[in-house]
Amino acid sequence: MLTYLAKRLLEMIPTLFGITLISFLIIHLAPGKPTDALSEMNPKMTPEARERLEKLYNLDKPIIVQYGLWLKRIVKFDFGESFSMDRRPVMQKIWDTRQPLLDRRLFITFMLNLMAMVIILMIAIPLGISSATHQNTLYDKITTTAVFLGFATPPFWLALLLMMLFGVYLEWLPISGLKSMGYDSLAMGSKILDRARHLILPMFIAAFGGLAADSRYMRSSMLEVIRQDYVTVARAKGLPEKKVIYRHAFRNALLPLITLMGLSVPGLIGGSVIFEQIFSIPGMGQLFFNGVMARDYPLIMAILTIGAFLTLLGNLLADIGYMLADPRIRTER
């Protein structure tokens, strides 16, 4: 088991390396110099000042050297200074150690995605299983139709509709940010409640896309498994149907879903840009969006790298899940 895990970890190293290379190349092969954005906005920028700036970012050196220097810095989580007005270190923007953990951008995005994943699993698995075990009944037809419709629904549109319904007409839920105006003066209990109320809509939207895909996948995977001989055998020896489904079929049907979960991480994290933008959530996705608008190159490179790193982390989690669910891998030497 440990060897399997170690092997997977080792395999990640070249991928991680490649990711840094690609995020580096996207920026350096793009037309125009990275410092253009910085100098365009500043009319006082003289050719000499520009040259100094290029020297500062090592843009006068060959590209291989630049990549090496950049790599050497990011190993220490130093992604350089942001191009924006405040010139703060990029890492401090993403992970501001002066703020409480709950308000750090990377933490917000990470937790939202993690919670969305838990919600997806909690709804998609039972939905897929019950739909499969009741194949061709009215219930199955309704859920299958709902899932198919969900698949075609743009999440940002659903977000708009829910904001309109729960925020504007019913006034039950707040529609922007993570906390209310007078948050700091609230008592502990009200603070938690306040945050929870702000999280309901964004969490649902974050989970929504994966929900449709995963329950559909769970259903077809389950349908395939319950036709297998070992399930027939389990039934033939007189096991109650519940036991057949949950002990014999479920675990085998789960395997492809775990793989799918691992694969869906990049989509989920990428979606942060959209839902953080809609709900004005101060997470990494929003920061990335602003960075793209301002052509803040160091910031963009940093978030691309961190985002890919999170994906690898998700894949690793999927591997561990796979290991727990599949005894064949667990006992492999």
Partner: peptide
């Protein structure tokens, strides 16, 4: 495929 889809598109 490891780079979050929408991040890549935006970049």
């Amino acid at each position: 495929l490891t780079i979050p889809t929408f991040f890549l598109i935006l970049a």
